[in-house]
Structures are given as structure tokens and as C-alpha cells.
């Protein structure tokens, strides 16, 4: 009996490792790799859902350029993403700063603010449909009581998309927690030093807090971009992309193309453009952020 050679031992190690990760490996192959490859192929075909795919080369991608709805969906999504990123960044930092202060009941307040993150999206949308109702919704009732004529939130082409962004800001649990954790990590000594230097609360925020938590803010911004580009359920449930296409988001257009118009091939091409876009934007945000973000050494 001799000791196994190096090669055999390595082989055993690898096969044991692969065996343990096999659930993921199989799932990755079947539910991810195959669909991704299929999607590449389908994007080069004309594939009516009711029919078989036919190879057409780059035709789908060429069609994109002259598709007015594509551009509209793209613009809507960009507007949505920009508004959400700005809104959720400001809100998460502000709320986190507020909640980190040691106060009675901070735990309860945190729990309440966190809660909407877990509410099923359909229930969320249904409730907001009511809140946004121009005649009897809470917002316009409250504004009416204050003597202001509220807008027709979801029914007005100018207000519909901002209304959805506003609703999205209600789901702030994740970025809030990330910011909160970052705030906790800011060393107390820095604040003390800043106070000794005679800094006021405002300049402490600008020169100590924000730089220290900027990596968390950047992380949130990137995540927010990625999620914004994928917004699908709210416009689908609340407005079906209307009024007049004002809330037709990119993912909604992909969904409609695939499952309403039954154009699987074109939908796949749209989806790949979305992937490129997501990667470009996320990389862009990281690149811009790199200049403004302060990373602690070590």
C-alpha cells in the first residue's frame, strides 16, 4: 500500500468539493447558464411565443434603434433611477443619523420604518393605489383639508413617475441598515477631535460623518441603480405603464414584449441591452464614486 500520488490526492479533493457544491452547480447550470445561453440565441431569432424560433441575426438589435417605445422606456427608467438614487441616498443617511442617536423608543421607530421592506409588493401597491386616489385617497384628502387641490397622482403624465419614486422611498429598510451600520463604525474619537477643533454640528457632518460613511452611501447608490433598472411590479399592478406610457419602465417593457406581444426574441434582445446598461451604470457610479469616497486605510 503506497501513499496516493499528488495528482490523485488533488483529484480526490476536487471531486469531493464539487460533490458538496453540486446542488448549486446543477442549479447554476440548469436555471442560469442554460437560460442565459438560450437568451443569447433567442435574441438573434424571431420567436413568437405561440410559434417556433426563426434565426434572423441582428435584426432585433437593429429594430431597437428605431423603436420609440424602447427609447421612452429607457428614458422613464433613467428618470426613475436618478430620482430614486438621489431620494434614497438622502433619506437613508438622514434617517440613519436620526435613528443612531440614543433615544427612548429608537428601537420601535426603527422597527416601524423597517417594516414596509417586508410588505408583499402587491399589498403595498394596492394600498398606495388607494392613498394616491385623486378623489378620496389620503393624500388628496389631507391636501384638500389644507386647502390645496392635490394632483391626480397616478393619472397625470407628469406626476405618475415621481409618484412611483415616492412610493419606492417607503421601502428603505436595506439602505437604511447599511448606513446605520456604517454610522456605528465611525470612531467616537473622530467626533471628539472634531469638537476640539471647534467644528459645529454642520461641519462635523460635512467633514467627518459623510466622508466616513461614503463607502456605504456609494454601495447603496449602486444597489439602488441596479434595482431601479429592474422595477416591474409597481407599474404593472398600479398603472400598467400608463397614463400614456408615463410609467412604462424598462423591465415592464421587456415583460410586455415577451408576454403581452409574445415576442420572445425581441424581449431577449431588450434584456441584453438592459444587462449592458446595468453594468455600465454601476461601473460608472463606482468610477465617479471612487473620487468622492473615502476609504479608511486597512
Amino acid at each position: 500500500m503506497s501513499a496516493p500520488t499528488e495528482g490523485v490526492r488533488r483529484w480526490r479533493e476536487v471531486s469531493l468539493g464539487l460533490a458538496w457544491i453540486s446542488p448549486w452547480l446543477v442549479g447554476f447550470g440548469v436555471f442560469l447558464l442554460v437560460p442565459v445561453l438560450l437568451s443569447v440565441y433567442y435574441s438573434l431569432t424571431d420567436y413568437a411565443l405561440l410559434d417556433v424560433p426563426v434565426w434572423i441575426g441582428w435584426e432585433n438589435y437593429r429594430e431597437l434603434l428605431s423603436d420609440a417605445l424602447f427609447w421612452k422606456a429607457l428614458r422613464n427608467t433613467m428618470v426613475y433611477a436618478v430620482l430614486s438614487v438621489i431620494g434614497s441616498s438622502i433619506l437613508s443617511v438622514g434617517l440613519a443619523a436620526m435613528l443612531e442617536r440614543p433615544m427612548r423608543g429608537a428601537g420601535l421607530a426603527r422597527a416601524i420604518i423597517f417594516l414596509p421592506t417586508l410588505v408583499p409588493v402587491v399589498a403595498n401597491c394596492v394600498t398606495w393605489l388607494w392613498l394616491f386616489n385623486p378623489q378620496y385617497g389620503l393624500f388628496n384628502s389631507a391636501m384638500g383639508a389644507a386647502g390645496v387641490q392635490g394632483p391626480n397622482w397616478l393619472g397625470d403624465t407628469r406626476w405618475a413617475l415621481p409618484s412611483m419614486v415616492f412610493m419606492g422611498l417607503w421601502v428603505i429598510g436595506s439602505p437604511l441598515l447599511v448606513c446605520g451600520a456604517a454610522l456605528k463604525d465611525v470612531p467616537e474619537s473622530l467626533y471628539e477631535a472634531a469638537s476640539l477643533d471647534g467644528m459645529g454640528a454642520r461641519s462635523r457632518l460635512m467633514h467627518v460623518t459623510l466622508p466616513m460613511i461614503s463607502p456605504a452611501v456609494l454601495f447603496n447608490a449602486v444597489m439602488s441603480i441596479i434595482w431601479s433598472l429592474q422595477v416591474l411590479a409597481p407599474p404593472m399592478i398600479m398603472t400598467r405603464g400608463g397614463p400614456d406610457g408615463a410609467t412604462l419602465t424598462y423591465s415592464m417593457y421587456v415583460y410586455k414584449t415577451a408576454f403581452e406581444f409574445g415576442r420572445m426574441g425581441y424581449a431577449s434582445a431588450l434584456a441584453w441591452v438592459q444587462v449592458l446598461l446595468t453594468l455600465t451604470l454601476a461601473a460608472g457610479a463606482l468610477w465617479i464614486g471612487r473620487k468622492g469616497v473615502f476609504y479608511r486605510a486597512g
Binding site: V36, S268, W272, Q274, V275
Partner: peptide, 28 residues
Amino acid sequence: WPGRDGVFVLVLLTLMIPQAVLMSPQYL
């Protein structure tokens, strides 16, 4: 085992794939 961390990076990379790309091919 050799290659473990490489495969793990692949696991993390799959988190980046937007759901929209998978929607129709998974359906099919």
C-alpha cells in the same frame, strides 16, 4: 480544494445578473 475560491467568485457574480434576462428564457 483547488479552484474553490474561483468557483465562489462565480457564485457571487451570479448575483449581478438582472432578473429580466432570465425571465423569458426561464419561462421557456
